[in-house]
Write a protein that binds this DNA or RNA. Structure first.
Length: 878
RNA sequence: GGGAGCUUAGCUCAGCUGGUUCAGAGCACCUGCCUUACAAGCAGGGGGUCACUGGUUCGAACCCAGUAGCUCCCACCA
């Protein structure tokens, strides 16, 4: 039979994923085993799979698969997030394409479209995750707007309201004119923007209405001058002392406003005169509060000017800015303009420039709630990985502000507050309860109307680790009891505050326990030039296409190879290629073993030594891998596995046991090999589930029961290993390597067998390894004792001497030079060691073992020099 | 403006409490091999004043201070 020379991933991937599903291996229900739980950060329903998801979910799958193999009851809960503003924006855009304006729809009609949209596109990303091999318990798939999850959100709102955390008030909020909703501070991204600073002249007068002079203010937002309700100067500013008590007149509309004084004004900046626009700037709002200024709001919700502006009504704010500039210039009110850079806020979801806007919003008071959530992280009950994020987290939690939780959207959980005709309100779960509440308060409930606003998406995702197990509505249910707190959360640092902190807050509030023990923060996936992946740059590879090209296992390996926790990773397709090559290497190792015919003959010494050695080496590597996993160094764990397989198993073990061409292999060796191979497959499985499962079922490993799959095989347990055996073998490897090197430099073909002489003093029994060395280095004979035959070249490993007979093919002069150089180097080395040992302070202060070691180094160097000198002398004689 | 972090081979990164094993790994590179498992491969090899300057120490990639460059987070200066 013939097996393909390269691994063909496609066949294996569909087959085994379907098989795992069929066998129910992903399913988890509470039982007597230790649980291992991860809740997936729910991707937006609007989303399609991008590289960030790939990284994130690969890591989760590795953790889950390993835990499952370790005999834990592994439960990975998938789901999606309704992402209120992002989704609503998409639905609005979709409707617009159809010629439908959201304004013309009722709430119910709009929601119908939105749900339709969600049903159509909402599952795409989860389907794509199957392709990645994600071993989620799909029966537990949840959506943050599933009826029970929505109910949990409503209950949480009521609960927090009753505890006094939620309040309603007029505040300056971040207004997204495109999404037409308020945003929390966290959803605003500030960027430096090139702007223009406009110097605008305001007429100054007194009560007589005359305009004898002008003052000039500098502003980046001339379109808001119509909302000015004062001009402010610094009381300590002598330049403007003459303006005290005077009035200024807003240009173009000629409205009279007071000139006020406040030390808030920076005399150095601009002209030292500030226009005060309480409706459209947070600082101005506060200034206005102090000075009892009226508030004139000239903007509509969509960012166009309203009738209060008097001019340019209906014009968009940015167009209005240009128009105003021209009007001011024409009227002689524009003194000059200059370029200016400043920070502008943008909506995280719609990228629209944020408009500070006064509005009635709902808030959640955070100070008290944040305290225990901070403590969990500070005292290590919740570990952040890497821990450098602890500082950031602390800083944020200690300076936390109240959370704007209302959003002026329809897609989401509608706030359970109810108004009567008098605009009085109560918080209640249903209309009936609301009526009862009004009645109890002796208030009328006529004209009962529910709050229009919905809750911030993060309010629902904050409950996610509990709500997926119905843990807030039914806090005693077996699922939440068993799975909560979950073990690991894998997510991006960007949402540490948005999401992680709020989950901890809610987790404590409901259960007095944090929702997870470890938070693994992945980096941002960038391109190899370090740029963020973005659609506009076109530098974001399509994950599905990558999997087509390199195989899923290859891409998984590629994602992990370069992704230490918390560091951004420069994604390069070359990593996927490396992953694919690795899969191919494993495939070919399998092909080799598969091709062997067993015979009932005894194993050779090399074969036995190899099996012994690899067993030790395996356990050593396993200990390293386990340690890496314990520290969440997933890429290191993978690299250790990679080297074990490629270098130790393929390059050494298989080469050592490999029978000569067309020779059979001893049955015991074949059996030892398949057993070791099986263990290797288990180690590989969490990283490369498909190829490991594919090979697992080959008849090479015997016939298997239906349920005997690699995915549920018992993960190897670390056994003790003998360091001395490993060290001895490492020496053997070095010897082989030296001989190969000699061939290379002397240009002796690997096909030419060479005799080797050994003169060992280290106590290593090279006799045991003679056959191994012969096989690996194509040595014709191994003799012990004299190593200084003429016509041979010599080398040292430690203080053991070796010589390879090159049948006179030796350049004596070059040989002498080489040995001479080596002796020179050792002399230099010895000098440094001697200097150290001659230093009394070193001998006194350093730890005894350090000093002893220096003495060893000295003795070692001296011994080597002696041997080399003899060789040199020998060469002189020849 | 405040806070955190980073700078080690061409690239991406390890280097735990300062001292064997301390200058490492993978990839890339160079040389030689189409050796019947694998050229997606095999064997071998060359690359680094550990950003810079000073200090502490018998001893510094590692500790301290300063300098330069980079990154991220937070922040209401028009």
């Amino acid at each position: 039979m013939s097996i393909s020379k390269t691994y063909n991933p496609k066949d294996a991937e569909d087959k085994w994923y379907a098989y795992w599903m069929e066998q129910g291996f992903f399913r988890s229900v509470p039982d007597g085993r230790e649980p291992y739980t991860i809740v997936m950060p729910p991707p937006n329903v609007t989303g399609v799979l991008h590289m960030g998801h790939m990284l994130n979910n690969t890591i989760q799958d590795v953790l889950v698969r390993r835990a499952r193999m370790q005999g834990k009851n592994a439960c990975w809960v998938p789901g999606t997030d309704h992402a209120s503003i992002a989704t609503e924006a998409k639905v609005v855009a979709m409707l617009k394409d159809k010629g439908i304006d959201k304004k013309d729809l009722t709430r119910a009609q709009f929601l119908e479209y939105a749900w339709e949209w969600k049903e159509k596109y909402g599952g795409i990303i989860l389907k794509q995750l199957e392709r990645l091999g994600a071993s989620c318990d799909w029966e537990r798939t949840r959506f943050t707007m599933d009826p029970d999850l929505s109910e949990a959100v409503i209950d949480a709102f009521i609960r927090l309201y009753r505890k006094g955390y939620i309040y309603r008030g007029v505040r300056m909020v971040n207004w997204d004119p495109q999404g037409r909703t308020a945003l929390s501070d966290e959803e605003v991204i500030r960027r430096e923007v090139d702007q223009t600073l406009y110097y605008v002249k305001y007429a100054v007068g007194d009560a007589t209405g005359e305009h004898p002079s002008y003052l000039t203010i500098a502003t980046t937002r001339p379109e808001t001058i119509m909302a000015d309700t004062a001009v402010c100067i610094n009381p300590n500013d002598p330049r403007y002392a003459h303006l005290r008590g005077k009035k200024a007149f807003v240009p173009l509309i000629d409205r009279e406003i007071p000139i006020i004084e406040d030390e808030y004004v920076d005399m150095e900046f601009g002209t030292g005169c500030l226009k005060v626009t309480p409706a459209h700037d947070l600082n101005d709002y506060e200034l206005g509060q102090r000075h009892n200024l009226p508030v004139i709001d000239i903007l509509n919700d969509d960012g166009t000017l309203n009738e209060h502006a008097e001019i340019l009504v209906g014009e968009d704010r940015f167009r209005a800015r240009k128009a105003i500039a021209k009007l001011l210039a024409d009227a002689g009110h524009l003194e000059k303009t200059e370029p200016y850079k400043s920070q502008v806020g943008f909506s995280e979801r719609t990228d629209a420039a944020i408009e500070p806007k006064l509005s009635m919003q709902w808030f959640c008071r955070m100070d008290e709630l944040a305290k225990p959530a901070l403590d969990y992280v500070l005292n290590g009950e919740v570990k952040l990985i890497p821990d450098k994020f602890v500082n950031t987290y602390r800083h944020w939690m200690e300076n936390i502000k109240d959370w704007t939780i209302s959003r002026q959207l329809w897609w989401g959980q509608r706030i359970p507050a109810w108004y009567n005709a008098q605009h009085e309100w109560v918080v209640a779960k249903t209309a009936e309860e609301a009526e009862a509440c009004f009645a109890a308060a002796g208030k009328p409930s006529e004209g009962l109307r529910q709050e229009d606003d919905v809750l911030d998406t993060w309010f629902s995702s904050g409950l996610w680790p509990m709500s997926v197990f119905d843990g807030t509505r039914r806090p005693e249910n077996p699922d939440i009891d068993y799975y909560y707190p979950t073990n690991d959360l894998v997510t991006a640092p960007e949402i540490l505050f948005f999401w992680v902190a709020r989950m901890i807050v809610f987790g404590h509030e409901y259960r007095g326990l944090p929702p997870f023990r470890n938070v693994y923060l992945t980096g941002i996936v960038r391109d190899k030039l370090g740029r963020k992946m973005s659609k506009s740059l076109g530098n974001s590879p399509d994950p599905i296409e990558l999997m087509e090209r390199f195989g899923t296992d290859g891409v998984r390996v590629g994602m992990l190879l370069s992704s230490p926790a918390g560091n951004d990773l420069m994604f390069d397709e070359a990593y996927c290629e490396q992953g694919r090559n690795f899969a191919n290497k494993i495939w070919n190792a399998f092909r080799l073993v598969k091709g062997w015919d067993a015979a009932d003959v005894p194993a050779s010494p090399a074969q036995r030594e190899a099996a012994d050695w690899f067993a030790h080496r395996f356990n050593q590597a396993l200990a390293e891998i386990d340690a890496h996993f314990a520290g969440y160094r997933i890429s290191d764990a993978l690299m250790a596995t990679y080297k074990l397989v490629w270098d130790d198993f393929c390059s050494w073990y298989l080469e050592l046991v490999k029978p000569a061409y067309q020779q059979p292999i001893p049955r015991e060796t074949l059996e030892a090999t398949t057993t070791l191979f099986e263990s290797v497959l288990k180690l590989i499985h969490p990283f490369m589930p498909f190829i490991s499962e594919e090979l697992w079922h080959d008849e090479l490993f015997g016939t298997r029961e239906e349920t005997d799959c690699c995915i549920v095989a018992e993960y190897p347990k670390g056994n003790a290993f003998d360091e001395r055996e490993l060290a001895a073998f490492a020496t053997v490897q070095q010897v082989v390597s030296e001989i190969r090197n000699i061939r290379n430099t002397k240009q002796v073909s690997p096909k030419t067998p060479l005799p080797l002489a050994i003169n060992a003093s280290s106590g290593i029994d090279f006799g045991r390894y003679a056959e191994s060395i012969q096989k690996m280095a194509n040595v014709s004979s191994v003799s012990f004792g004299e190593t200084k035959q003429p016509g041979s070249t010599t080398f040292l490993v430690g203080t053991d001497e070796f010589s390879v007979d090159l049948a006179g093919n030796v350049n004596v002069a070059a040989e002498k030079e080489r040995i001479g150089k080596e002796i020179d180097y050792l002399h230099g080395f010895l000098k440094a060691v001697d200097a150290k040992l001659a230093n009394e302070r070193f001998v006194q202060n350093a730890k005894p073992e350090i000093v002893a070691n220096e003495r060893n180094k000295k003795a070692d160097a001296e011994a080597k020099i002696k041997i080399l000198a003899e060789h040199l002398q020998n060469l002189e004689g020849s």
